[in-house]
Write a protein that binds this DNA or RNA. Sequence first.
DNA 1: ACGACTTTGTGAACGTGTGCACTAGCGGGG
DNA 2: CCCCGCTAGTGCACACGTTCACAAAGTCGT
Lengths: 215, 215
Amino acid sequence: MPDRARRIPEATVARLPVYLRSLAELLDEKESTVSSERLAEMAGVNAAKVRKDLSYLGSYGTRGVGYDVEYLLFQMSRELGLTHDWPVVIMGAGNLGQALANYGGFTERGFPVAALIDADPDKVGRQYHGVQVHHVDELPRLAEEKGIAIGIIATPASAAQAVADQLLEAGIRSILNFAPAVITVPPEASLRKVDLALELQILSFYQQHAPDPAR
Amino acid sequence: MPDRARRIPEATVARLPVYLRSLAELLDEKESTVSSERLAEMAGVNAAKVRKDLSYLGSYGTRGVGYDVEYLLFQMSRELGLTHDWPVVIMGAGNLGQALANYGGFTERGFPVAALIDADPDKVGRQYHGVQVHHVDELPRLAEEKGIAIGIIATPASAAQAVADQLLEAGIRSILNFAPAVITVPPEASLRKVDLALELQILSFYQQHAPDPAR
DNA sequence: ACGACTTTGTGAACGTGTGCACTAGCGGGG
DNA sequence: CCCCGCTAGTGCACACGTTCACAAAGTCGT
């Protein structure tokens, strides 16, 4: 890595996967190059933003032409660390955990579900969609053996922080939290959250404050 | 509405549900008042931010004391439009749609699932977790009859934009999109998105760029 | 009644992110 | 070979969001 001086802004990082998806579509359509304007339209953003975002990755475009779809796709995959699979572990084999294990979208996109973890002894040993349920004590061993670097929290809110701590303990420092609870992690760890009720409540706010209260 | 001069920033709106949850916890613990500092800790943010955010709702605190938990809870619920239920419709009765219908968390938090919609005639008429599957043609009627104001898109990416258009057509202007696709809506509509693979890819980026490449 | 203490509400500085508008540079046609 | 058109890359101004620091305003004990 020659110069890692240029730090990529968080907002840009969050958009990279959207560009990636657009590029994959373009490749499907056998488009060999794409302009920032086209890519912007597909990603639902401003063209200047696309150019600035891509410039953080390097100068991969050609003036007067655009970006080479395949090359940019490769470079971006590399930057996002998507050149190999990232096995994930799902914490909590309840409703949500089972649904996530059952959801094929993860494996398909390079995040195979390596294991489910649950505290309930009745669930340990069972399988959901081909994924084995293990006891939490086995987490460190599994993490090591299967090279798990990402943990998904699908427990009730009350258990979320404890489960996060267990993940960190097992050396897993990237966490995706589905539980409706605030959890804190040390600065060297990454945390993202998905809260369905929260999203609906935000929609409710804007619905409530809509100019024309339709219903 | 006397003065609606003070517009609430988007970033603040996104935090209100987190405060709301914290306040509900405090009420459970029979705490009658709470300081901005305590609330900040529970919500995982800075105390000054809490005060500024709450100040957009009005001057509901008492200097030297803090905020009255019950009163603030009420005011915030009112502001978020959570004083009544918001029935939702789930578009797409596939894997994800079924899982969402099955997930009790929505109803519990005031967003009952009023209907599932699917294009597949084999699925129409079936029930999942007590929720009836209807054909898309019935959407306008259902929306009207059941007072549905929020639509959840749980279709494949390829159908997402068309389904969003159908929702808008039926007068539903608040949309939560689970499909991994960019969709556009007119400015009077609200759109939020939840993309699981995208979140994992962001985690992958930071994992890739971690100071100590653990594994 | 007053002073010490606590905590809110907010002005102001700062940092991050966005978008315009311009420059730099490449490709293609004559 | 040169000029024209097109598009990437980027400096700059602006908007938005965050955080600090402090004054205002209340409580509580004496």
